[in-house]
Simulated scan of single mutants.
Amino acid sequence: MLFRQLEYLVALARERHFARAAQSCHVSQPALSEAIRKLEDELDVPLVRRGRKYEGLTPEGERIVVWAQRIIADRDALRDEVGALRSGLNGRLRIGSIPTASGAVSLLTGPFCTAHPLVTVDVLTDLQSVDVFRLLQNFEIDAGITYLHKELPEGVQTLPLYEERYVLLTTVAEGLTHRRSATWADASRLPLCLLTGSMQGRRVLDEVFASVGLTPSPRIETDSVGALFAHVRTGQWASVVPQAWLHVFGVPHGMQALPLVDPSAAVPVGLVWSAREPGSVMARALVEVARHEDLATTLDRLPDAR
């Protein structure tokens, strides 16, 4: 059995298409298919349901791909560990983040890259919380950044980073110019642009609105925090955005950002990684950096007024 055969099986399970799996592994489709056939012969079980096109993995294949993911992850972790012992950390750190927290990721990647100059970093930011945990489980990322206010899956360690607070983002023409804060009721009366209902960041907002007997009715929904800022800039819309994003954009000219009160909602956001031992040396290094970076204090200093 070769690592290459396991990598091909994992790629096929991920891509669900022979040609795309071969392309992701930088081999020809016949080479990938033949390697998987040889793995089936060696294990003496069918792994792939074959028809005129890919039809999925067999029940045996579903189990074997889990082992393959673990074996490949352990191999990569071993290589990283040996490399770190020999010449310092060297390789690739993979981080997955929910969109609302992606603006704060740079507060970790910056000091991480300074501490480990031989490491490159991949950041995925268009993930729902379930995606973060799925990618962790499948060893496709080393660590994730997500909400910590719900029950978390087993086998995950966490490190709180900051509390997500919210501001009402409007143009200065909205009539709230002389206010130092706004209520969620104020926000509900404005023409709103919010994140889409499928995103956990939006569900958090809906829960806060519901806690005071309100239901927001946004005219525009988007999966991008940047798009929220862009729509508010037009002067037609207002939005509720995480205060952490003011660290990225500031308060653009002509806009105001008012802290939302009644209630003053705060949702914990943190780093998550696999509890398996010895685990990813990249994750351990990121956690060590995160323990020394006070993201909460940094984000609390962001502008929260006009």
Rank of each mutant, 00 (worst) to 15 (best):
H253L: 11
T114V: 14
I36Y: 12
L124S: 06
G91F: 13
I64C: 05
Y166N: 11
I95G: 00
D44E: 13
A210Y: 13
R4N: 11
R189I: 04
E7H: 09
Q5T: 14
L159N: 02
L9R: 05
S198W: 10
T298K: 02
V105F: 05
H231C: 01
L205N: 04
G83I: 06
P303N: 06
A13F: 07
S102I: 03
P216G: 01
T215Y: 04
T222M: 01
V225P: 01
S239N: 08
E81Y: 15
F3W: 15
G144Y: 00
T170A: 09
R291D: 04
R75D: 14
R50C: 12
D126N: 12
W237L: 11
P252K: 00
A227W: 03
N90Q: 15
V267H: 10
R79N: 08
A73M: 06
H116F: 15
C193N: 09
A238F: 03
V267F: 08
N138Q: 14
L286M: 06
V66H: 10
F229T: 08
V204L: 05
E7T: 12
L190F: 07
R276P: 02
Q200G: 04
I71Y: 12
T100L: 08
V212L: 06
L205F: 05
S211P: 11
A104C: 04
I36N: 10
G96Y: 01
P99I: 10
R165W: 09
L78P: 04
E277A: 06
L176A: 08
V45D: 01
A68P: 11
V287K: 05
L295Y: 07
E55M: 13
G144R: 00
S274D: 08
L246E: 13
T234M: 05
A230I: 05
R179P: 15
A185K: 13
V232P: 04
R16E: 12
H292P: 00
V10Q: 03
L205E: 04
L108M: 14
A84S: 11
G175C: 09
Q128T: 12
A265N: 07
L176H: 09
V287G: 02
E34M: 15
G279A: 03
E55Y: 02
R202M: 07
A266G: 13
G226I: 06
F18D: 09
E15N: 07
R20T: 14
L205C: 06
T171C: 09
H253S: 10
A11N: 07
L127V: 10
L152G: 10
I141D: 02
A265Q: 02
A31K: 15
S224W: 08
L135A: 02
V232E: 01
R52M: 10
S102A: 09
L85R: 14
L159H: 07
T177E: 15
D80V: 08
A21S: 09
R94D: 09
L39I: 12
